[in-house]
Amino acid sequence: MGRQIRSSLRRQRGMSYWGWLGIVAIFGFILTCASKMGPAYIDAYYVDEGLRDLSENPGLRDMSRGEIKKELDRFFLINNVRGEPTESVRILRGADSMLVSVDYELRQPLFYNVDVVMKFNKQLNTARADLCCEPTVDLEQFRKRD
C-alpha cells in the first residue's frame, strides 16, 4: 500500500520546468503578436467608424472631394489614425452614387526576418449605404487607369 501511495504522489508532482517554459513561450508569442498587430486593427476599426460617420452626413452627395477628405482627415486626427490609412483614401463619383474607399496593406515586422502582412479594404458606397464599410466594388479596374 505504501509503495502505491508513493507512486501516485510521484505522478502528481505538477508541471516540469520544460512544461512551464513552453507555456511562457506560447504566452509571450501571443502577447508579441497582439502588441505588433493590435494597433493596425484598432486603426481599421476607426477607419470603419469614420466611414459610418460620413455615411450619416445628410449633405454627403453635395460635398466636394476635398471636403470629404477634410472630414475624414479630421475624424482620423481626433482618433489618432496615422500613416497608410490616411494616405489611401480614394473618392470615385458616378452618375448616381459615390464611392469612398480606404484600401491599404500594412507590413509589420514580427520578429527577426518574419513579417506579417495585413490587408484592409473599407468602402462606403452611397448607393448601398446600409452595407457600409464592406467592399462592394472591385477597385482593380480603376487602378489600371490611374
Rank of each mutant, 00 (worst) to 15 (best):
S16I: 02
Y17T: 11
W18E: 08
W18R: 11
W18P: 05
L21V: 12
G22Q: 05
I23W: 04
V24Q: 05
V24C: 08
I26N: 07
F29R: 04
F29V: 10
F29Q: 02
I30C: 14
I30N: 08
I30P: 00
L31H: 01
C33M: 15
A34Q: 02
M37L: 15
P39D: 06
P39V: 03
A40I: 04
A40M: 07
Y41F: 11
D43A: 10
A44V: 01
A44I: 07
Y46G: 06
Y46M: 00
V47R: 00
G50M: 07
L51A: 09
L51C: 03
R52A: 13
D53R: 13
L54R: 08
S55Y: 09
G59T: 12
G59Y: 11
G59L: 08
G59N: 15
L60K: 03
L60V: 04
R61A: 13
R61K: 14
D62Q: 15
D62T: 11
D62I: 09
D62P: 00
M63C: 06
R65T: 13
G66C: 06
E67D: 13
E71L: 12
L72Q: 01
D73H: 03
D73Q: 08
D73G: 06
R74N: 12
F75H: 12
L77I: 03
L77Y: 11
I78V: 15
N80W: 00
V81N: 01
G83N: 02
E84P: 06
E87Y: 01
I91R: 07
L92C: 01
L92S: 06
A95G: 11
S97C: 02
M98L: 15
M98H: 04
S101I: 06
V102W: 04
D103I: 11
E105F: 05
R107W: 05
Q108W: 07
P109F: 09
F111G: 04
N113D: 13
V114W: 11
V114N: 09
D115I: 05
V117G: 02
M118P: 06
F120Q: 01
N121K: 11
K122G: 08
L124A: 05
L124N: 04
N125F: 09
R128L: 06
R128N: 12
R128T: 12
A129I: 14
A129C: 04
A129N: 04
D130P: 01
